[in-house]
């Protein structure tokens, strides 16, 4: 993180210096114009969504709406009456956090295992791990559904959370990180001190892998937050559904009530928007370093 910051700083300083070299030409103005235009295009649908959610259905269907109205609470109440959307939010948070925790822990564990232990068949097993990345997630979905049925796990969170333990990308990423940032000498030192192998992992390795854990955590969190197909077919109870499934059900239930639908999507976007604007620097640098290593 530190290095990253320094680099940006120097880039910035460089920038200051160079500005004098390049005059504010037409080209530069054009570039800014394009950047701002794209930024506007990125944000406009969200703006439109927020504005529209504050109007009545008849206004929505008749006029172009540019300014906020007063109907938000009415639309909101109609929505809340049938869809427990905040419940969906909490469900999504629960699923995402537990899955991400499992994913991170076990990815680090297996990545470390592949990186630092020279066991028989290691390379073949690692190839197997990589091979599973090629399998599209939908391939087994029907068998998954029926199998979970015979395990009596339908309508529970287990089939959604537990598979996070086997995340091939996570292992691959963690192995690479462990290869480069966990020196063997430290492990030897730990062993001499009489730590158990599991103890070494928890006390020495895991802290060293923390930056990688944070990066992988962002990916895992976003991926799980957006998960849709599995919860949709596994869960029946409305009170268990995560947010994406609730949004889909809002769409099917409020087919004529656009006001309520808009409120639904506003609720699904705004908290993420706030969360993102607070820690966007972390997320973006995480994604950037993750992309580089992955």
């Amino acid at each position: 993180m530190e290095i990253q910051g320094n680099k940006q700083l120097t880039l910035h300083m460089n920038g200051r210096r160079k500005i004098f070299k390049f005059k504010p030409t037409l080209g530069k103005i054009l570039i800014y114009f394009i950047l701002i235009l794209i930024a506007v295009i990125c944000l406009l649908p969200f703006y439109s969504m927020m504005i529209t959610s504050t109007h009545t259905n008849s206004e929505i269907s008749r006029k172009l709406l540019l300014t906020p109205g007063t109907e938000f609470m009415n639309n909101y109440e109609r929505l809340i009456h049938t869809v427990p959307i905040w419940r969906g939010f909490i469900n999504s948070l629960f699923i995402t956090i537990t899955s991400t925790a499992l994913n991170l822990y076990f990815s680090a564990l297996a990545g470390y295992g592949f990186s630092k232990f020279d066991f028989k068949g290691r390379n073949i097993l690692f190839l197997c791990v990589l091979g599973t990345m090629m399998i599209p997630s939908q391939l087994g979905i029907i068998g998954f559904f029926k199998l979970m049925n015979s395990f009596h796990m339908l309508n529970t969170y287990w089939p959604i959370i537990l598979p996070s333990i086997s995340n091939a990308f996570g292992i691959f990423f963690m192995k690479q990180m462990a290869d480069s940032s966990v020196p063997k000498e430290i492990l030897e030192a730990g062993r001499i001190d009489g730590c158990s192998e599991v103890g070494i992992f928890h006390k020495l390795v895991l802290p060293m892998l923390m930056p990688a854990v944070a990066t992988l955590g962002i990916f895992s969190f976003i991926g799980k937050w957006n998960d849709f197909l599995t919860p949709m077919i596994i869960l029946f109870d409305n009170d268990l559904q995560p947010l994406p499934v609730m949004i889909a059900s809002v769409k099917s239930q409020f087919s004529t009530d656009f006001g309520a639908m808009y409120v639904g999507i506003v609720i699904s976007v705004i908290p993420i928007l706030i969360f993102f604007s607070i820690i966007s620097k972390k997320i973006i640098s995480g994604v950037t370093t993750g992309a580089l290593k992955g």
Binding site: F106, L109, A110, Y112, G113, F114, K116, F117, D118, F119, K120, R122, L125, C128, V129, T132, L162, P163, I165, S166, A168, I171, R191, E197, V198, F201
Partner: peptide, 16 residues
């Protein structure tokens, strides 16, 4: 010690 490698990668394979 290398057998610990098996333990560490086992959860992945079992879950998978």
């Amino acid at each position: 010690k290398s057998r610990y490698g098996y333990y560490f990668v086992a959860p992945f394979f079992i879950t998978f």
